[in-house]
Design a binder for these strands. Structure first.
Lengths: 340, 340
DNA sequence: CCATTTCGTGGGAGCGTTCCCATGAAATGA
DNA sequence: TCATTTCATGGGAACGCTCCCACGAAATGG
């Protein structure tokens, strides 16, 4: 049942003026007589007229919407990033279209199509862990739609990126464990397909090197971030002839899961096994003992990414620069790596 | 720099047919010769044509978008609801426009306007804790845009609602504490302005009544859900001449905060003070001791609400029924209310 | 074999704006 | 006072699509 929508034409007719004038009055165009504008505004209010963004969007060929594609919604990380981005977008009058790729390449491609169909003015994206082919991003470049990567970025595409200093963060986290007196520090790493996994691994190794510690391949495990597997790997580590006395996990959910397994096995944290995570997720302060972690400025990632995107949207594509913004991490020390 | 968009006219010209035919071919209209359709499809692919939703939306006067207004994004509850809703919406080809009211009435009103301007086909909403005036919702009814409330619902408006059985949940939670042998059970309640607060309070009281326990006003505190205040109230309770030996908190963040305060004060949980929450948030399993809580089917709330909304969108407004779907809660017993 | 239905297609209005150009009135300057 | 600029407004194309109506050709039926 579509009842009639109130349009500027309705207003124009009642006021016996043209729709052009109504349009100008409503959009704040200077060359409209004050009394005319007044009358239009009042009548609009009275008829509860709402400007039709659908028409405005078509007319202006832009949606005033930015798209965000994230791999998942389960951990608190992405929702917080989205919140940050949404804030910045809203300040400039932009809406946000959200879609999750479910860590699946095909869904990511489909989502990209939806973004295109909806004529978003730009896209913020953090890739699936299985995305290795980047052709579906080319079309954005061809169509002149700016793209900003965050967190899980693609280095094969020239586009702005927002990341945290994964290398430095991992370096500091590992060094923290070394300075704590830990001798055998294990690393539960992410999949090598992710740049952040590789960088964190690198930081871990370099910290060991700096302090002249051996890098033991036994103690480095790469996994695909499906949490169910953490138990297997942690048990494996604990069952080694000479087990590690510390664990640096690639992210907080992994670390939290690891803590649960370690406690289950009856080991004391941090005495027998210290644990450090990465990102300072919501649960990290709650678990017992509290999780030492490299905090990422999660909300800020969203804000910075959105700002970068808006900047691109508002400048000519010929002057786009593929800036990479590297945000700092901060070591938060809690019980999992602290002698009481 | 707006380069030319590929439109159905471009395809039509290349193929020397009319745009009507191209449109029909692309939308799967039956009366198009198979070879024509084939040719159109191929050329469209080749020119990487993307249907322009902006135009389709204007033409059809509907956006194929549903709006969701939530009060906040901080706890894990709303993101999960949104995820559930998004899944259902996506299945029917609907996009989701998200906005957060920041627990502020004015923002909620502004967000409602944005939804209207974007011509969303329906809105899912959970109100601000300070929303007492519902006029900004009337316009949706006037314009025939369906509205579905969830979680924090408005009973003054005839519209579908999705809630959990707050009364029963609170009743069971309280009864659980009674059966545990607790004698003085306090309740840290939400603001009376929220229906769910009132219902939970009612369930709490009725459980006490059923078991012939006195209802002690000293032990019932209503607060505005700003977590910083939990400390004050919990301390107040603990400092009473005869302090309570159990606490039923209106939601999990409150309960978690309470546990932290109780531990800080050196009391043992659950021996000296048992705690039960409501909703089974992400952190509840992590905190030590684990938080006993009434689990809500969070994701399902989003799914059901979205489905109800889609149902309304697809039926004539004259046959809309203000169904209230009440989902069941489930008691999850953890360390905060369990001997050992 | 002619009248009627079916099929595939073309033409064009309409969705509600914005924005450019035109127009006439008022204001300005010499 | 007349030419020129400024101002407030109107008219209409454009945005890209859908959908209704019309039309000729082919298929059908008696």
């Amino acid at each position: 049942m579509k009842r009639h929508q109130v349009t500027i034409i309705d207003i124009a007719q009642k006021l016996n003026i043209s729709k052009s004038t109504v349009s100008r009055a409503l959009t704040g165009h200077p060359s409209v007589r004050t009394d005319t504008r007044q009358a239009v505004m009042e009548l609009a209010q009275q008829m509860d007229y709402q400007r039709n963004m659908l028409a405005i969007n078509l007319s202006s060929s832009q949606s005033r919407t930015i798209g965000i594609i994230v791999p998942e919604f389960v951990t608190s990380f992405f929702p917080i990033v989205i919140m940050g981005a949404q804030e910045i977008a809203a300040q400039s009058g932009y809406s946000v279209l959200i879609s999750q790729s479910n860590e699946t390449y095909e869904t990511e491609v489909a989502n990209a199509k939806v973004m295109l169909a909806n004529r978003v003015d730009g896209v913020l994206i953090s890739m699936t862990r299985e995305t290795k082919n980047f052709e579906h991003f080319d079309v954005f470049k061809r169509k002149g739609i700016p793209l900003v990567f965050f967190n899980r970025v693609c280095h094969d595409i020239e586009t702005p990126k927002v990341v945290v200093d994964d290398y430095e963060g991992a370096f500091k986290a590992t060094e923290h464990l070394i300075l704590l007196g830990k001798k055998r520090i294990a690393h539960l790493a992410g999949p090598p397909s992710l740049y952040i996994s590789r960088k964190r691994l690198e930081g871990y190794k370099d910290a060991l090197r700096k302090h002249k510690r051996p890098i033991l391949d036994d103690l480095i495990i790469s996994y695909d971030l499906t949490l169910e597997k953490v138990k297997i790997y942690v048990k494996y580590l604990l069952d080694l002839p000479t087990p590690p006395d510390a664990l640096f996990a690639v992210n907080d959910p992994t670390a939290i899961e690891a803590i649960n397994v370690i406690k289950e096995q009856g080991l004391s944290i941090p005495e027998q096994m210290a644990v450090v995570g990465f990102s300072n997720d919501y649960g990290s302060a709650l678990i017992e003992p509290g999780l030492t972690t490299m905090a990422q400025p999660t909300r800020e990632i969203g804000q910075v990414a959105a700002q970068l995107l808006l900047d691109q949207i508002h400048t000519d594509s010929s002057v786009w620069k593929p800036i990479t913004r590297v945000l700092k991490t901060e070591l938060i020390i809690r019980g999992s790596s602290q002698r009481n």
